[in-house]
Amino acid sequence: MFKKSLWKKAVISGLAVSLMLTMTACGTPNQPAGTSKVESDYPNKPITVLQGFAAGGGSDQLAMLTGPYLQKELGNTLVNQYIPGATGAIAWTQLTKQTAADGYTLSITNTPMLMTNYLMNTEIKYTIDELTPIANVVTDPGILVVSKDSPFKTYQDYINYVKANPGQLTIANSGTGGDDFFTILQWQKATGLSVKMIPFTGDGPSWQAAAGNKVQASSTNLGVVYSQVKAGNLRALAIYSEKRSDLLPDVPTAKELGVDLVAGSSRGYSAPKGIPENAKKKLIDSFTAIAKDPAFLKGLQDAALPIDLKVGDEYAKYLKDQETEFKSIWDSVNDTIQK
C-alpha cells in the first residue's frame, strides 16, 4: 500500500513541478536588451537594491516606478531585496556595515527616517557619513488637511482657533519620529503656537482619523492625500513646499501664509561609502537621464509623487542639512516627549 501511495505522490509532485516550471517561464521578467551599448565596464552584473520596507509599501512603489527606466539606462537588471524592519534601519545598517562598496548594492533612502533612526535611538549605529548619496528622486511635501465638514475653511480659521485654544487642537501625525511629527514641531517653532499631537501608525490612519472627525486636523503628505483632497473628502489648508503644487494650485504654501516652513519626506538612492568613481558617475548620469524621460515623469505624476531630483553632492548636502536640523529639533523636544 505504501508503495502505491508513493507512486501517486511521485506523480503529483511531478505534475506540480512541471506546473511550477511553466509558471516560472511566464513569470521571469525580461532581461533588458542591448547590454553591449555600455562603454564603461560598470555595471556588468545585476545591481541589488536593498529595500528597508516591505514589498508593496511606499518605497517599493518608487522602486517599481523608477526601476524599469533605470535598468534601461544602466543596461543591467536591478534586483529588489526586501529587508524590512526597524523603519529601514536593518537594511541601512546592512548597506553601511556589511556591503561591499563596489556599486553593485544600492538602497532606497528615505528622509527623515534615514537620519531620525539613529538620532533617536542609540542602538542604531550607522550614520549618513557612511553613505555615498547618489540621487534624490521625489520629495513629497507636507500638507495640512482637515475633514470636509470641519469648521476650518481656511488656514486663517485654523490658526485663529489654535491661538484662542493653545494646546487644545488635536492633530494627527504618522508616528513619533516620522516626517509629519517633525513637521508639526517645526511648525510650532516657526509660529510659536502649540497643538496637541496624536501619533498614529502610518500616514493612512493619520488622514483617516481627520476624515472621520476623530481628530481636528492631520499633518501628512501631498502624495498620500491628493486623491482625497481632489474628491472633496479632505480640505487642504496649507502646503509646506517652496512653491504651490501643480496638482493642487489653489492651496497656499506656508511661506505665503507667513510661516517659514518647508518640509516633507524624500526618497532617493544611496550606495555605501567609497564606491568606485566610474560607478558613481554612471549611476548619477543615469538618474539625470531618466529625470528627462517624459514617460517616467508621467508615471510619477500619476502617482502624485512630485519629482525632486538632486544628484551627488547636492543630495549629500541636503541630507547633511536635514540631519543638523532634525538633531536640533529632537534635542529640544526629547525631554518633553519622554516625560
Partner: peptide
C-alpha cells in the same frame, strides 16, 4: 499599491 503602479490613483 498595485493600482498605482498601473497608473491608477486609488481613492474615492
Amino acid at each position: 499599491g498595485g493600482l498605482m503602479v498601473h497608473g491608477i490613483m486609488p481613492g474615492p
